[in-house]
């Protein structure tokens, strides 16, 4: 589902590569933690998958897309098959919960009748049925992140990228969000989550890919955050 082959990414403003000859593969339906300290290359990794950046060397594949080589006009197709969740939720403050989720479908031209049907379904999946007409600022952090996850998942992406999704949440709420991501993972969606959260990684016992200074230094099938850290 996701494959990086000898990927190096050097930013113009820096001499040290953000990613240094990284090769890694993630299969369909896998749940993978991407860990490492700040500046280790996690964000660059995610940005390459979304083609926010192109690699300086090497190849990137997501599903059937040759991400680095693909034509610019096909990029929206790639992004439609990837869902994204962030630490800061990125909800539209002027729209209701349902409108926020519907927005993701409206802007890719989905017909009204589809939107009316799938938005309540996905809100129920994330446990927000009954809160469709609330505004984001009326919700707790955990609920806001659920809206963001609903928006990322509403178009049934093949891959869900989560960049520190629990970074702004307390441990209990974080646990709920992880359960939700697990549920999404069980539908067959590949989930790749970048995180600093030790306890979550340790409790989930999933595959862990650790980056340091742009290199993969660990890839455990059932890993923990790190020994002695």
């Amino acid at each position: 589902m996701i494959r990086l082959e000898h990927v190096t990414k050097v930013y113009k403003t820096s001499t040290r590569p953000a990613l240094d000859n990284v090769s890694v593969e993630m299969g369909k339906g896998e749940f993978v933690f991407l860990i490492g300290p700040s500046g280790s290359g996690k964000s660059t990794f995610l940005r390459l998958l979304l083609r926010e950046e192109v690699p300086s060397k090497g190849r990137v594949y997501v599903s059937n897309f040759d991400v680095a080589k693909m034509a610019r006009r096909r990029v929206p197709r790639l992004r439609q098959s990837i869902g994204c969740v962030f630490q800061d939720f990125r909800l539209l403050a002027t729209k209701t919960v349902a409108e926020n989720v519907a927005f993701a479908l409206e802007v890719i031209g989905k017909p009204r009748h589809t939107i009316v049907k799938v938005v309540p379904e996905v809100l129920q999946l994330v446990g927000l049925d009954g809160k469709a007409d609330r505004m984001p600022n009326e919700l707790s952090g955990g609920e806001q992140q659920r809206v963001a996850i609903a928006r990322a998942f509403v178009n049934r992406p093949l891959v869900l990228l989560a960049d520190e999704p629990t970074g702004n949440l307390d441990p209990d709420t974080s646990q709920d969000i992880m359960l939700l991501l697990e549920r999404i993972n069980r539908t067959g969606t590949t989930v790749l989550m970048a995180t600093h959260d030790h306890s979550i990684v340790d409790s989930m016992r999933r595959r862990v890919v650790e980056l340091d200074h742009g290199k993969v230094i660990r890839d455990d099938a059932r890993g923990v955050y790190g020994v002695g850290r």
Binding site: P76, Q80, C84, V107, I108
Partner: peptide, 17 residues
């Protein structure tokens, strides 16, 4: 910019944005 950022991420075409 927030709207536009989201539009980009969910794969809205250039014309749509």
């Amino acid at each position: 910019r927030t709207e536009v950022g989201i539009m980009r991420l969910v794969g809205a075409t250039r014309w749509y944005t």
